[in-house]
Design a binder for these strands. Structure first.
Length: 300
DNA sequence: GATACGTGGAA
DNA sequence: TTTCCAAGTAT
């Protein structure tokens, strides 16, 4: 705790104890880097400052705020949970929080401890790595272990301290053991073996850029699409339209590394012609946002 | 218990 | 250029 008090990073969600804001931060931080979250966090809360504002928003507008952050199911579930809570108060215990969509064991414990002071420990990737190294054990009940260590006076800070240690010192690859406050207790001095992530498939796809003055043709992904349902993107092109693409970019989406060629062409059937300024307000996929940015059709 | 879900940036 | 992710959850 002393180490945390002296070394904690200043982060936007550490300036508040508003349960809603803590909740939003925890959802955004799931499998997502702090650096990527900060900007989205600030903008999201400006647009949806409280649960009521989020609950009455259209899903498309919620997704638009999330556009580019990834794992869009998180935004849908956050929105769904906000609607559920519109008529009741925010649950104050991890057990009840976990009943809400998008809130699992980790997030429930994080919100309950940080916002409400419940003495319940979290286990995330950081905590697992820290405990694994200290214990030099592959078979450890992380939840029981960290629950046994928790600071009952400051459970939220304790949880954040464990994660902060993993995120800034007990790094996956080159841990900074010299800076570690518990190196005397550590059984491994930072050794750690991780499973190699599965090799990703490679695929090449084409998109059509059909612009007309200040408008552009986009399509909305089907509501039942497995990947990014309801989000907007450029129309796909089934074949090569010119000898050289207007733009070629690489982009990875979960399990596939894509090479994307963008061809200038006519708006296909089923596409919608939209002013670029309007398109910018839609929930575009990250890839589409990237392409339009590269082509200077969007700012950022 | 696997697997799918997105993305941009560091190494 | 390629690898490896990052404060998990739902199915």
């Amino acid at each position: 705790m002393d180490w945390y008090d002296a070394n904690r990073r200043s982060l936007p969600w550490r300036k508040t104890r508003d349960p809603y804001k803590i909740w939003v931060s925890e959802i955004m931080l799931q499998q997502t880097r702090v650096a990527a979250v900060i900007e989205y966090y600030e903008r999201f809360l400006k647009t949806f400052p409280d649960i009521t504002a989020l609950a009455r928003a259209d899903e498309q507008d919620v997704l638009a705020q999330w556009s580019g952050l990834g794992y869009y199911r998180r935004a849908r579930m956050l929105h769904a949970a906000a609607k559920q809570l519109a008529t009741q108060k925010m649950p104050r215990s991890a057990a009840v929080l976990q009943e809400l969509p998008g809130i699992g064991r980790y997030t429930a414990a994080a919100i309950a401890s940080i916002a409400f002071g419940e003495p319940i420990a979290v286990v995330d990737g950081n905590v697992e790595r820290v405990l694994s190294r200290i214990a030099r054990s592959g078979s450890l009940d992380f939840w029981a272990a960290t629950q046994g260590l928790i600071d009952h006076d400051r459970p939220g800070d304790f949880n954040q301290a464990m994660m902060e240690l993993g995120a800034t010192v007990c790094l996956p690859k080159n841990p900074l053991c010299g800076r570690c406050p518990v190196k005397q207790s550590c059984g491994t001095r930072g050794e750690h073996k991780t499973d190699r992530p599965p090799t990703r498939k490679k695929s090449t796809i084409g998109y059509v850029l059909a612009t007309n003055r200040d408008s552009i043709a986009l399509v909305q992904r089907p509501a039942n699409a497995r990947l990014m349902p309801g989000m907007w993107e450029l129309p796909e092109s089934k074949r090569v339209l010119q000898s050289v693409p207007l733009l070629s970019v690489r982009h990875s989406i979960t399990t596939t590394d894509y090479t994307i060629n963008v061809w200038r062409g006519r708006a296909p059937k089923g596409s919608v012609q939209l002013k670029v300024a309007q398109a910018a307000k839609l929930p575009l996929t990250g890839l589409t946002r990237k392409i339009l940015r590269r082509l200077s059709l969007l700012r950022d």
